[in-house]
Amino acid sequence: MTAVLEVHDLSVAFGGIRAVDGVSFAAERNAITTIIGPNGAGKSTLFNLVSGLIPPDGGRVVLDGVDRTGEPPHLMQRAGLGRSFQITNLFFELTVFENLRLAAQRLENPMRFLLPVGRSDCALTRVDELIARFSLAEKTSELAGALSHGEQRRLEIAVALAAQPSVLLLDEPTQGMSHADTADTSKLIRGLAKDVTILLIEHDIGVVMDISDRIVVMHQGKKLAEGAPSTVRNDPAVKAAYFGHA
């Protein structure tokens, strides 16, 4: 197995709080690596460090063998990283179609950056794929802001996936979804792992155990444990820190 994304000794502190404190792990190609941990454990902050939204105080982020520590988010995206957000982060006043087209735009030849959007064939083909895959065909002309919560969460994943990243970071994609939607979405995510390496943050422990290839447990900024689902489930320290609260 090869690691597509490696994180070495990553740290950041906000004021006195060490939100992420010396975390190291690797995400294997086309596997689902899930980060779990109680509220405030530092999971989203870890994503922000990996995706370049926050520069780390220390440590390294290696993507496809290249050290990309401290690179800004738009360069991380171009290096092959896509991400979704815990709090739905879409272009609410634009349509579903336009959200996807924008997100897929990077696939287009850069020479077409100043050609009419209607000529962006690669992007438009990709949008059609996404619309089909995420069952958004009925909603393409609706404003993202007018979608139901579940639809918005689905679009959030589609937008993150649009530019065909090699690594996809999903921050609580099923957050606030109904049971049925959660089940569908976890199946969808499992399917995505066929062609993309996934780093997932998920609270629903059923989903976690079901779809993860590997689990990283965080607690108070530190990595508490790491391993296959069955190993992590039976780890006494994890039980005390995490499942104890759940």
Partner: peptide
């Protein structure tokens, strides 16, 4: 596409860097 990036900035600037 350039113009659409500008519209995206107006709609939700924070999301734009993650689009590359």
């Amino acid at each position: 596409p350039f113009g659409r990036v500008l519209l995206a900035i107006r709609a939700n600037e924070r999301r734009v860097p993650s689009l590359g």
